[in-house]
Design a binder for these strands. Structure first.
Lengths: 143, 143
DNA sequence: CTGGATCCGAGACGATACTG
DNA sequence: CAGTATCGTCTCGGATCCAG
C-alpha cells in the first residue's frame, strides 16, 4: 500500500481530493464490504447499542434478515476487524457481538446513511414517481 | 410515510435513536440504492467535480466500470433525483451528468466512506490476514 | 459520443432442514 | 441458542454487438 494506488494525486494537490481508487487498490475491497445492504444495517444496528448483543437479539433488530445472512455478514465484518465475537462457554451457548473501535467509526457512517435516507425518502419517492410518469410518454433524447 | 414506519420510537425517546426500519419502510429502498458499489463511486466521483461531466469523461474517473453499469447506475440515481442529466442537442451528442443538491449531500456520505476505507485499509488488511490465518487451525467454538 | 440489446456465468439471497 | 448445510431462485454485473 502506502497511497500509490489512488489515482496519482500530485504532491502539491489540494486536500479533499479523493477520487475513485484504481481497481487494484485494496481499499476497494473495503468499500465493497460496506456497499452491502446487510453490512450497512448490521453496523448501524450495533452502533446504536450501548453494549454487545446476542445473535438472535441482534437479528430481531434487523427486520427481514435471515439467519444465513446474519451469520454471513457478521463473519465478514468480524474478519475485517469491525465486529467482535465473544463466546461464553455456558449452556445453552451465549455469543455476543459488538463493535471494535474501527467498527464504531464505520457504524457512524452507516447510521448517517440510514438517517439521511429516512430524512429524504419523501423527496426521493416524489422524484421517482415523476421520473416513472414521464418515462414512456416522453421519448428519451439521444439514444 | 410520516414516520410511522420506523420501529415505533416512543414520543419522549432520546434523539439519535435511529434503528433499522421495518421491511415495508420506503427508506429501505433508498438505502439499498446507495448500498451498491457503483452508486457509491458514481456519487463520490461526481461530488469531487466542480462541474458536470460527460458520459465517457465520468467513466474515466471510475476505473473498472463498464458502459452498461455506468448507464444503469446513472439511470437509477437520476430516477431518485440525485443526478441530473442534461442533453445538448449538438452533433455529435453531448450529455452531461451532475449532482442535484440532494445528490451533493449523498455524495458527501459516499466520499466519507471512500476516504474512511482508504484511511483504514492497512489496519483492515492486517485483521483479515490474522482472521484467515487462525481460521482452519483453531476450531470455531460453538456452532 | 452516448448509449441500447442481449447473452451468460457468478454470486447474492431466501427457505428449509438439521445439529451440539 | 447459535449456528451449519443444502437447494433453488434471482439479480448483479461483465462481455459483446449494435445504433442514432
Amino acid at each position: 500500500m502506502k497511497g500509490r494506488y489512488l489515482m496519482d494525486t500530485a504532491p502539491g494537490e489540494a486536500k479533499g481530493t479523493w477520487t475513485v481508487p484504481a481497481v487494484e487498490c485494496p481499499s476497494r475491497t473495503v468499500v465493497e464490504v460496506l456497499a452491502n445492504k446487510w453490512a450497512l444495517y448490521v453496523l448501524g444496528a450495533l452502533r446504536q447499542q450501548p453494549r454487545p448483543l446476542r445473535f438472535n437479539q441482534l437479528g430481531r433488530t434487523l427486520p427481514g434478515i435471515t439467519q444465513k445472512m446474519l451469520t454471513q455478514t457478521l463473519r465478514t465484518l468480524e474478519r475485517d476487524g469491525l465486529v467482535t465475537r465473544t463466546v461464553y462457554p455456558t449452556v445453552p451457548p451465549r455469543v455476543e457481538y459488538g463493535l471494535t473501535p474501527l467498527g464504531h467509526e464505520a457504524g457512524l457512517l452507516t447510521v448517517a446513511i440510514g438517517e439521511w435516507a429516512l430524512a429524504h425518502v419523501d423527496h426521493i419517492l416524489t422524484a421517482r414517481q415523476a421520473f416513472d410518469a414521464q418515462a414512456g410518454t416522453e421519448p428519451r433524447p439521444v439514444g
